[in-house]
Design a protein around this nucleic acid. Structure first.
Lengths: 335, 335
DNA sequence: GTGAAAGCGCTAACAT
DNA sequence: ATGTTAGCGCTTTCAC
């Protein structure tokens, strides 16, 4: 007696079609010579049983799960949300699925996720999150590509031209007449290329830079308080703000509205990222748009070529030039 | 000669520790009686080989992948991004992983994803996306929970109290002095409970409702154009707008800024959702906050209990009362 | 053109 | 306290 409740297996299909399991497999994978009659019978059995091949079994046998692990700080932030959507669709085009990990910017979680992905035998990893202090990435024997932040010289990295973006934003502020544009960013460092762009333009113009930092993952309401305090301290010396992400720019705009500071007349504001969601929420915000689609396609292509070539990132120790895509400026009401 | 490049298997560990595979398995799963000496030797072999159990093999054997498929329109929108983050962490607490599917609101994609998830033998599905016209959900023999929109009476559904939210938003507008608050929503229908709340309050106040619709997935710039056209048409008859999501509210605010309409004096605006990201981008926006954490925990608990009880949604045909969580009002500068 | 047998990595039954 | 055997669902030799 058959168990009708059980998910049917290939063997069930074979029995029903009166052929061997091998033949069913061949029909499924379109391999070898099959008589039309056999094909039809198998197709019918599949239909009748509503059979779906078990990808888990395929993965075990074939040694490839067709799954890619993606680690980002959190898809609750539109930039990473959009990145993950783009990745998912780029991967899907090649028959890959996406296992999502939100590290929340926590190094411990990120480490755990790395382990998890290895245990699940993902075929590769795309990481858009990194606590730079995670050495584990170095000895991962798995195709790996990072987005935006470069982890190590030999790990492929895809990003936008952050420095050009920083320059464009700063130049826009100067062009609109700002004398003292300030920078508001997450972490000030020599490796912050948006900051580098800002500093370069100001240096050329002979203007003293003013840099404020509020960490990305600072919880509300502290984050807003820090931004407000910083703004109140510098105004009215400052007549423009380049915020290195759009959400920060939004907080600046709100501070201006509440403080009775006119935008753009008294204060000009530019953001960074230009995601669809924020373009809806803040359609007037001037911003530097990242080519997220391009970045994600680039990352996917790099990863899949690694997978296809069995060229594991750990293997080739040579320095790889990061793949950089150009940004574009959107000028809205706030400048 | 061993192949040092290969990922080590449990058999390799067994060989190195001088025990049988079963013993290694027992050590890994902490089952049965093991001598301390054996435990140590196995632990050492695992360490030396840097062995990780192959979850794919475990899944094939145990008939459970510990993976949950999650279908949403797109995590590029903060609401769904935040939902997915919450789900991922709720699931992770129970040892489950999340396979992400962004349906982009397209019925064809949603169908494909359903197939994909079945083929990958996920242990359950949480869907926050539905083209109502997808009958496939009905005959899915898999634990299934929906978020926000109810698919069918017998499928468990978790959501916030949308009608109460609609009421609260509308009442806030009236309380602040609006005489003609309009509704801006994605789809007007009797099943749109936010709209129902709005209509109910207006009916009680004896005010004629004004309803505008702009579909969720309308691409820019058409979306903005539609909203702008609608606003220009109704103002100044309208002195308040309840937008059923925060992004729409953002577009309304921008229209007001560009049209020289003072907020809140000439036009009051309330949104809906209150995600973290939008609270950062538009800190001044009055909005109805959804308890996303609660909703996601509720959905996860319901799903996991289905899984544990082998009670498949298709099985129990009885009507299930949706799980509703209360919303809360945030009043900002825009009202 | 089609089938039988072996095996991917693991664990549950059944020994001992 | 530990080992042996069988099998999850599939594909890949190698036969015929």
């Amino acid at each position: 007696m058959a168990e009708p409740n059980q998910t049917p297996s290939l063997v069930d299909v074979a029995a029903r079609a009166g052929v061997s399991p091998t033949t069913v497999s061949r029909v499924l994978n379109n391999r070898g010579y099959l008589s039309q009659r056999t094909k039809d019978r198998v197709a019918q059995a599949i239909e009748e049983l509503n059979y779906r091949p078990n990808e888990v079994a395929r993965a075990l046998l074939g040694q490839r799960t067709k799954m890619i692990g993606v680690i980002v700080p959190t898809v609750a932030l539109p930039f990473f949300g959009e990145v993950v959507v783009s990745l998912e669709h780029a991967l899907e085009q090649h028959g890959y699925r996406l296992l999502l990990c939100n590290s929340l910017g926590r190094a411990d979680l990120e480490r755990e996720y790395l382990d998890l992905l290895i245990s699940n035998r993902v075929d590769g990893i795309i990481s858009g999150a990194h606590n730079d202090a995670i050495p584990e990435y170095a000895d991962i024997k798995l195709p790996l590509v990072t987005i935006d932040r470069q982890l190590a010289p030999q790990i492929p990295n895809v990003r936008c031209d952050n420095e050009a973006g920083g320059r464009m934003a700063t130049e826009l502020l100067l062009r609109r007449g700002c004398r003292h544009p300030a920078l508001l960013t997450s972490t000030s460092s020599p490796r912050n290329m948006r900051e580098a762009g800002y500093r370069a333009v100001l240096a050329e113009a002979g203007i003293e830079p003013i840099v404020g930092t509020v960490n990305f993952h600072t919880p509300e309401p502290r984050r807003t308080q820090q931004i407000d305090a910083w703004l109140s301290r510098w105004l009215p010396n400052v007549d423009g703000v380049f915020a290195t992400d759009d959400l920060m720019a939004g907080t600046v705009l709100e501070w201006a509205a509440q403080s009775g500071v006119a935008v753009p007349d008294q204060l000009r504001v530019v953001g960074f990222d230009g995601t669809e969601a924020i373009r809806r929420a803040l359609p007037g915000l001037s911003t530097v748009r990242q080519p997220i689609r391009l970045i994600c396609r680039g990352a996917t292509d790099l990863l899949l070529s690694q997978i296809d070539n069995h060229a594991f990132s750990a293997g080739d120790q040579q320095r790889i030039k990061p793949l950089e895509f150009p940004v574009s400026l959107f000028e809205g009401r706030t400048t």
